[in-house]
Design a protein around this nucleic acid. Structure first.
Length: 273
DNA sequence: AGTATCTCCTGCGTGC
DNA sequence: TGCACGCAGGAGATAC
């Protein structure tokens, strides 16, 4: 379940392996992802040189000479740098083979991920999947005031609100639960009822959980090529997510677990108001 | 426009 | 042991 910290870590980890390389071959074994992969993508990628790698929200952007390859990992997607001879396993859908006997392998059992090609005539940020995204949580584009403003008159639960990528990107279910706990805000409250002060705290806590996870992910970065270990966010101590019924780390009350917008939601009935 | 619900998919845990 | 089932979840699509 790659969340934004993992995507950030992946981008940093991939960069030295990809930048400056040229693609010698692309093999697509399964075109049916969340959206079908462009049929002519293997041909397009041929002989492309890789210039840079970045991300927007959880979309990975691999900039090439003639366009940008945009990858979303969905729920279960993974990318690794491998030897192209490495035995294929189930759900190894795409190999992008480079000019130095390595390859970028995309694996995604649930196929919630996606791969798009954006021609260099189009600004990647103008792509329909990116153009309406909210601000990045780790930049000054996100502020308590911004969230407060957008929340006015909104009846949606605050948790669903901060998980909406059109409001702010990169806050998945795990971090929404954690950030709301740290900010002492009950997940079910209407977004419009959350005060400006509370939004300021919430933004701080969103940044805190994301940065903690990025830092943790960084420790596995050096082994990026071969490492199969836990993504960063599992290394940080989760205070509420996955702990329904267990004791609140602050007040020892049993944590409450509910479903909110079809998502598992855990909070402390005493600490969060 | 805002809101809630549905949807894609496979792997895994649970209960019988 | 094996089956059916429910759940996990990012985020766009859909129906009000």
């Amino acid at each position: 379940m790659p969340e934004l910290p993992e995507v950030e870590t992946i981008c940093k980890g991939l960069a030295p392996h990809l930048i400056g390389r040229t693609i010698t071959r692309a093999i697509i074994r399964e075109y049916r992802l969340r959206w079908p992969i462009l049929q002519k993508l293997p041909k397009i990628l041929l002989q492309q040189s890789i210039i840079g790698i970045s991300r927007r929200g959880k979309y990975i952007l691999i900039q090439m000479a003639q366009g940008t390859l945009m990858i979303h990992l969905g729920m279960s997607g993974r990318v690794r740098i491998i030897q192209p001879t490495l035995a294929l396993q189930a759900h190894d859908h795409v190999d992008i083979i480079l000019d130095n006997q390595t390859a970028l392998r995309f694996t995604d059992p649930r196929r919630f991920g996606s791969i798009h090609w954006i021609d260099s005539h189009t600004d990647p940020y103008e792509h329909r999947l990116l153009i309406n995204l909210g601000p990045e949580p780790l930049t000054t584009a996100l502020s308590g005031d911004y969230l407060w403003q957008r929340a006015q008159k909104r009846k949606t639960a605050i948790k669903a609100f901060i998980m909406d990528s059109h409001i702010v990107v990169g806050v998945g279910n795990i971090y929404a639960n954690e950030a709301l706990f740290l900010a002492q805000i009950k997940p079910t409250r209407a977004a419009g009822d959350v005060s400006r002060t509370e939004f300021n705290t919430l933004v701080k806590m969103i940044r805190k959980v994301l940065l903690t996870a990025i830092k943790a992910g960084g420790t596995t970065l050096k082994d990026f090529v071969s490492h199969e270990g836990m993504p960063g966010y599992f290394q940080q101590k989760l205070k509420v997510y996955g702990r329904g019924g267990e004791a609140c780390v602050v007040c020892k009350q049993p944590l409450i677990e509910i479903r909110l917008g079809q998502r598992s939601t855990v909070y402390c009935g005493r600490c969060q108001r």
